[in-house]
Each structure stands twice: as structure tokens, then as C-alpha cells.
Nucleic acid binder design. Structure first.
Lengths: 341, 341
DNA sequence: TTGAAAGCGCTAACAA
DNA sequence: TTGTTAGCGCTTTCAA
């Protein structure tokens, strides 16, 4: 087994081998602008023969560019982390970053100690930019990133107030409101009129937007009937029982997540209600639980991976031209009809 | 908004402010060994006043230590990525690494191009070590890591043959065989005797181990009854139908994953079999789907987060003393009894 | 178009 | 116990 310190050839070695100066090798390695073709070839040959790989620490030291992006995820206890949402998002980010030869440094925040650690890391110039998820109102991270001058893109519309003299935050979100509208319109088209909603925690922007979409679709057509859940299956179970108690004749439910919808399914089965004959059910997310449910759930799909990719792309664009005016991106949602409605 | 290049104080600046040499500041910043208390305080004060943060690029350049660990995940299409398994594993790793002030660089592999990219990255000295998941027999990564002399710990028992003259690979796995044994013994204790098994793909070590545990428990007590699944709900559905066709009087099923178990549940319900009265069902994993199933699944829990932590710890130990003889770690599995058995 | 040379910020011999 | 000094490997003026 080779030891842990396999000595690697340096620019110097390549230069010697190719019979040119270090500067020329550097130019070739970085694109070859302004170097004669013949020399370029000679250098490239030496690079291959020696198996030369640039030392990024040395490069970073002079360029002040790290080639790395931080992905910051706060509170991995939340649903972002416990369902495939997170994994898909990461996959999209990873795809885009590796296409651009950038590395992905993952920073998970769990306790308040971690904030300090991560804040320090972000301010220390270890990364060129950051992607941040699931921050809440009073999260200290955005202002840390701001004062460190670290370009940042947020996942989900930030719900903190715009700060004086700062640029508006750049973010990528899905069109939660429109997704909810599609779901409820679909139920209306199926002839349902007593349509309840099970919301997520109402301090989250996504839950609020989905509730707003529900109200939009119902406005002037039927009375809203709202129960609050918490994005878990148990919460969905309880909220469903609540709705049934308040409106025994209800004929449809729109749940703000698939997990809550499958909880609702359980309550409905326990009460002897058939789905979709007696009560139609529509969920939100389409990330696994929807397809595993019995019956499989009609739901709203968000292209989570695409969101990840767009976030990364937006950040790279900002890095390339820091002064360009960039707009937040909202990606579309799409209804997926299955057997529960 | 501060510009992207906020100039940061250097060691030099701190030294000047504290009235000492750069070397002394360096010593203090790195633990302060062999520096007089009074001087240490003086330096620390200067550090705080100036908001000094070491430049790791410069440090890495001379120490050849990056302070970063790569987490390599191949084929994120697989279950490792699509269920919370992955997220929890990452959380454990992240916890341990940040406790040791190491960064987590995430490398996802999706296509064959990515292998080259990742191989290059690992060989380029960007990280001090690697944690690798879900590799298959002929995966090129282990030998890349080996020839680059990069200390590596694997998640799951590697199923490739030990290579000549190389150290045996270091890995962390759960005791799949014992977990399966516990599951089947539990069914026997409940008085079941016609117990079928739904396995995962038999080219995966975990699936093989769970099947072996099933056979262990049944040996001398009852005849094995095996159907192969693929770790998906649909596969479980089909395998259950297969078992029922071959053994209509079957009174229990052990599925090699919760997702397959919930598929089995669906088939059983469609056939009018009550769970657990007619057929008892036990799954494996306990990562979400088990608790969401109806009825909630008896299953085998693996402490996934702990596995992640142990992997990270093992790697750090190897980094600290490269020549110590370290053993693979097998973490225990535990039966969780719910309503399906 | 190429090369010489300075220097990025830090650590680690070595000397005092 | 502290300071001086010589690099780590690279990019980037500047001059040729």
C-alpha cells in the first residue's frame, strides 16, 4: 500500500519536462490563452506523462477562489431532511456543480452551537458562495453571509423582511400557490363541493402559499374548511378527524403534503369511508409516500431536482458577474392524477 | 453590501498588533503549546480584536492536510438515496466530522463520466480521506483510492475479493444476519410456522445476509419459502403474490425491507387476508415507511445515524494513526414490534 | 508569445 | 520560550 503521502509532480516538474517556464505551463493548464499551439501540445504531453494535477490549495492562495460551494441545511430534523425531498434537491445541485467543476461542501446545522461554527466557516473564505435551505425568520445565517460578502441563493422564498440597503435575497421556489390551485380545481372538476384542506404549520411560507391556492380555487364556489396539520402522517390523521367532526358530509380533502394525506387516508379507512368514492384525497410533493399509499395518491409534483439545479446555476451566474441584476426563479408545479381522486 | 472580496487580517497583522512574531501567533492559533500564558493572552486578544481567521489554503499548502473528508455515494438512484437512510447516515457523519472540525465534501456519482471526475478529485489531494457507499463488485473507486493512498472507510461490507498485498478494507455494517434472525424468531414465538421470506436483490450483501438470518432461524423448525424482490414496494407486491400462489396456507412473511413489506401488505389486503390475524408481516429498516404503513409494521431497526458516526470516527482514527490495526465495525440490529405481527 | 520574479498566508526547522 | 527564515505550489504582473 502506498503511504498516505504520495508525492505529486508540480508545475515546476512539468515545465522542466516540456522545456518551458512555469508561467507557460500555468497558462496552458488554465486554458492556454496566448500560448503557441505547438507549445501547448508539448506541455499537455508532459502533463499527461507525469500525471500532473494542480494543487488547489496553492491556486486558491493566490486567486482567492476556492472552487467550492457550501450547501447549508438548517434543522435536518424537519421534513426537508426526512423525506427524499432533500436527497433529490442535493442531486440536482451536485449535477450542476460538478458540470461546472465546483465542489459541494455540505454543512448541516442542528443546534445553536452549529450556527457559530457554520458562520465562522462561511466567513473564513473556504467557499465561493452558499446555497441555504429552510431558514426561519430570525435566522442569523443570512446576515452572516451578507456581512461576509458571500454570494448566496436561498431554497424557498425567504420569509424575513427585506433589509435596509441590502440587495433583495436571491431564491428559487416552486409555485406552491398554483400547485394548490390545480389540486383543488381538479377536485371541483370531479364534482366535489365540500372540500376540506389540511395545512402544514402556518409559520412556513410553503404551507401558507398552499393554503392561499386552496382559497383561490374555492373562492365564490364553496366555503373553505381548514384544519391545521404539521406535515406528518399523525398530524394528517388528527386533522382529518377534526374535519370529519366539523363536516360529516365532506366529499374531498386536499392535504398540504403526501404524508399528511396518507394520515388522512388512515382516518378515512377507520371511519369506513371509501376513497375515492366517498371522499377524494389529493396530496402534495410526489416523492415516494404518494405512490406507496393505498390507494396511490393524486398529488402535486414539484420538480425538486430541477430546483436544485436552478439554485446552483443561479449562484454560478452571480459569481461570474456579481453586479448583474438577477431575479428569483419560481418553478412550476404539476398535478399527477392517481387513484385517490 | 460589502464587496465579494472582504480583505481579512493575516497572521502578520495579528503579530504586529500583539507585538510578537508570526511564529508565535501561529503557535497560539494552533493550540499554544510552548508559549507563555501571558503571551498567549496577548495574542488571543489581538486575534479577537482583528477578527482574525486563518487562511486554510495557506495552511493546507504547507501542512498537506486539507481538513476535509469526501463522502462518495455511487448511484443515487438506489434506495440508499431515495429513502431517509441516506439522510440519516449523512447526519451521523456530519455530526462526527464537525465535532472534529473537519469538512464534509459530498461527491455523488451518477454516470460513468462521474467516476473519472471523482477519481481525479480523490487523487488530487483535496481531501484527507474518504467515506464510500454502495459500491458494487467491479467498482473502480476502491482501487483508485488505494493507489492514491487515500484512507477510506466503506459503508456496508464490501463484496469484492480482498486484493493481494493490500490491507483488508475497513468498513462499518449493521448485523443484517442477526436482525433477520430476530425477526423470524419473533414470528416463531408468535406461533407461526409457514413463514415466507421476500428478499432483496441477491447480488447485494445486505440482502444475502438477511436471507441467511432467515434460514438460520428456520433451520430444523420449518421449511424455507423464498421469493425474490428488489427492495421496492411493487417488487414486494409481486413476491407476495408469488408466495401465496406457492403456499396458500402461509401464516407469516418476513420482508427484507419495509418498502417490500408494504407492497406485501397491499397484496394481502387485495386477497382478503387480514394482517396480522391471517398473515403476520415483518419488515426491515424502520425509516419511515414502516410507521406509515397500515397496519404499522413490526420491523428491524438499524441505527443508521450511529453507523454514519462510527464510519467517520473510524476514518479519523486511521488518519490519526495510519499504522494502527483497525477492525471493521458491525452495529447491532433491534426488533421493533408494532401491529403487523 | 514567453520568461523572470514576486508574493499569496501559513508552518516548521533551526537558531538564539 | 521566542524569533528568523525558508519554503509549500501556484498565478500574475512586468519586461524582454
Amino acid at each position: 500500500m502506498p503511504g498516505p503521502h504520495v508525492p505529486r509532480p508540480t508545475l515546476e516538474a512539468v515545465a522542466a519536462r516540456a522545456g518551458v517556464s512555469r508561467a507557460t505551463v500555468s497558462r496552458v493548464v488554465n486554458g492556454g490563452a496566448g500560448v503557441r499551439k505547438s507549445l501547448q501540445e508539448k506541455v499537455n504531453r508532459a502533463v499527461t506523462e507525469l500525471g500532473y494535477v494542480p494543487n488547489i490549495a496553492a491556486r486558491t492562495l493566490v486567486t482567492r477562489r476556492t472552487g467550492a460551494i457550501a450547501v447549508v441545511i438548517a434543522e435536518p430534523e424537519t421534513r426537508v431532511f426526512s423525506d427524499p425531498f432533500f436527497a433529490q434537491q442535493l442531486r440536482g445541485i451536485s449535477r450542476e456543480l460538478s458540470a461546472q467543476d465546483q465542489q459541494l461542501v455540505l454543512l448541516l446545522i442542528e443546534g445553536s452551537d452549529d450556527y457559530e461554527r457554520v458562520g465562522r466557516y462561511l466567513s473564513a473564505g473556504h467557499v465561493d458562495g452558499a446555497l441555504m435551505f429552510s431558514l426561519h425568520q430570525d435566522d442569523p445565517l443570512p446576515s452572516m453571509a451578507g456581512s461576509a460578502g458571500l454570494p448566496t441563493v436561498y431554497g424557498g422564498r425567504p420569509d424575513w423582511p427585506a433589509r435596509q440597503g441590502e440587495r433583495p435575497p436571491l431564491y428559487v421556489d416552486t409555485d406552491n400557490r398554483d400547485g394548490a390551485r390545480q389540486a383543488v380545481r381538479h377536485l371541483l372538476e370531479r364534482g366535489r363541493r365540500r372540500i376540506g384542506v389540511i395545512t402544514g404549520p402556518l409559520d412556513q411560507a410553503s404551507a401558507l402559499d398552499r393554503l392561499a391556492g386552496y382559497r383561490d380555487a374555492l373562492s365564490g364556489v364553496a366555503e373553505p374548511l381548514v384544519a391545521q396539520g404539521d406535515f406528518t402522517a399523525e398530524g394528517g390523521e388528527r386533522a382529518m378527524a377534526d374535519l370529519l367532526a366539523r363536516a360529516p358530509g365532506l366529499d374531498a380533502v386536499f392535504a398540504g403534503s403526501d404524508l399528511m394525506a396518507s394520515g388522512a387516508l388512515r382516518t378515512l379507512r377507520a371511519r369506513g369511508k371509501r376513497v375515492p368514492e366517498d371522499v377524494a384525497v389529493v396530496g402534495y410533493d410526489d416523492l415516494g409516500p404518494a405512490a406507496w399509499a393505498d390507494p396511490p395518491l393524486t398529488t402535486v409534483r414539484q420538480d425538486v431536482e430541477e430546483m436544485g439545479r436552478v439554485m446552483a446555476r443561479l449562484l454560478m451566474t452571480r459569481l461570474a458577474s456579481p453586479d448583474a441584476d438577477l431575479e428569483p426563479v419560481v418553478t412550476p408545479a404539476r398535478l399527477i392524477v392517481r387513484e385517490s381522486s
